[in-house]
Nucleic acid binder design. Structure first.
Lengths: 324, 324
DNA sequence: GTGAAAGCGCTAACAC
DNA sequence: GTGTTAGCGCTTTCAC
């Protein structure tokens, strides 16, 4: 930067102000500086800037599993949306473990990250307090409010209603769910929503027809097997996400159970493979790219000074395919 | 750090040396320092460290599309393998564009990243020269050597032979390929390999049965449609990757063409959805997690001082499923 | 509208 | 085996 200053015949302070726009600079001075910058191919040293300002230009994306297509797409969108601000996305897998979630958050705090986007899995709201106090913007992508962080939530009532309607039209009465783990943060809102709405469609989601496991294909298979072994055997199974639903399909084909003939299946997310499996998976779409854009917007607003908490709803959409 | 030094009754230099191990420290001094660090919850400021050393602790993963399951898995593995060194993975999408590849590389240079892992798509070997001169380790995951960078390459001869064998056993003679774009860096080695080996199996890959496109589902569909319109119509189609193969399957079902009855189909990568589609996709597996581990190892060796170029081969594996 | 200069927290050369 | 200290490149206060 001092090189640029010398070349432009100004002080390095002026170069800095040209770059940041934090104080007015005479047009011709500005031009001279910009010419020198272009000439020398100068780029600011972000380490020095971070040291001085106490703020890095990194945003951490903290998720249970970046290899999950939903989160991979979220990473892609976030990166796309924030690159214009010179912000980099750092991916962090927590493998759904609270200790890793906390460790990552602690690091974000210590390194004074520009922001954090997190899908908490076993985190407690108070785990975010320190970040909040340090003024580091946090966007939570989850179904329930989470401390004082900005929030991106699904609006899934209408879509879930449509799913139930479709299930009802297929003359199914015994609804079950393969849900996430019991100790997940905020419980399983997709389960709660289903339980709340089911009575409107002449059915219910009895406790004994809810099985739980991790968000994995294996857990989906295990959950489906368990449900099929019940005396009161379900004829429609909702899954907390599409990965779980795929596991259920694995097991169904292993057990020779016809989908949707014997059991109807509904997933969540509409991962791109939902239309690839046979039968094609009926699902409640939750668009990762819109979530990413919303998170990026919330972050940008914080960078620009917003200090009040904000929530953005992203609409879920019922996608009728062949598994119901 | 000066707080820690004060608490431990030593100088901040000693604290630094305890942390880095770059010079011997008396056991009791070390203990006192470690106690103070634990006590105060101290963590080094990486911005200050980067400024001082001229090296950041970021590794950039530069790929065409992080939402592609292969690259998403690569990111996950890389992050997992390098977290122990306090290194963070920064994901960068190039959307297969050379200008973005170059811009990202320039940034890695300017910010003095700890390393770069890149799957070049339209980059030229000389684009890496500046990084090399600056001593920034670069690992290239590609099928062909690339300047002076370390390399992770597939060893796919045996697997490709097995694929051809299988195709031959299915009495197919008219082999085609839906390949990547012509202007991709290093051409399309999967195509070259197939062309080289085909004669050993009593067939060949004629120029007019090679169609090209981006690595996308849409391009796969378009490529398949084009092949099906040829007078000399193929009865076996290889695809440069599984995403392309899925596109081909889309089009086949649209055209009412039976796979594998009329046309056999072979993919590359064994993305997790390959076993999800019907018919299940026969493919040449290239394991993203092994690639990630190899890249991490190469990087670590460079951090520890290796200065000679090294290549790691990762074995591809033929996965026979139902599409041939 | 512009400049001088302090100082962010660390590392490593030098001194003992 | 340990301490002192310069300085990395930037931002920002204070002065003009």
């Amino acid at each position: 930067m001092s090189d640029v200053a010398r070349a432009a015949g100004v002080s390095s302070a002026t170069v800095s102000y040209v770059l940041s726009g934090k104080r007015p600079v005479a047009p011709q001075t500005r031009e001279a500086v910009e010419a020198a910058i272009a000439e020398l191919g100068f780029a600011v040293n972000t380490a020095a800037r971070s040291l001085r300002t106490g703020r890095s230009s990194m945003v951490a994306l903290i998720v249970p599993d970046i290899a999950n297509p939903f989160f991979a797409q979220l990473a892609a969108t976030l990166q796309e949306e924030l690159r214009g601000l010179g912000i980099h996305i750092l991916v962090c897998n927590t493998r759904a473990r609270r200790d890793e979630e906390r460790a990552l958050l602690a690091e974000a705090l210590q390194q004074r990250f520009a922001g954090v986007v997190i899908t908490p899995f076993r985190l407690l709201p108070r785990d975010l307090d320190a970040l909040h106090q340090a003024g580091i913007p946090v966007v939570v992508s989850a179904d329930v409010p989470f401390g004082s962080a900005d929030l991106v939530v699904p609006e899934a009532k209408a879509a879930t209603r449509q799913a139930l309607e479709k299930v009802k039209a297929a003359r199914r009465r015994r609804i079950a769910m393969i849900a996430g783990p019991r100790d997940a943060t905020g419980g399983d809102p997709r389960l709660e929503l289903l339980r709340t709405l089911a009575p409107q469609f002449g059915t219910s989601l009895p406790r004994e027809l809810v099985v739980r496991g991790e968000h994995s294909r294996e857990a989906g298979a295990a959950g489906f097997a368990e449900l099929m072994s019940r005396r009161y055997r379900p004829d429609a199974v909702f899954c907390a996400n599409d990965v779980i639903a795929i596991g259920a399909m694995d097991k169904a084909s292993e057990l020779g159970i016809d989908i949707p003939g014997e059991v109807a299946l509904v997933g969540h997310d509409d991962a791109f493979f939902a239309s690839l499996v046979r039968p094609q998976l009926t699902t409640i779409r939750y668009p990762a790219d819109e979530v990413g854009r919303a998170a990026a917007r919330l972050l940008k607003e914080r960078f620009e000074g917003r200090s009040v908490r904000r929530t953005v709803q992203v609409k879920a959409e019922f996608i009728a395919r062949a598994s119901v």
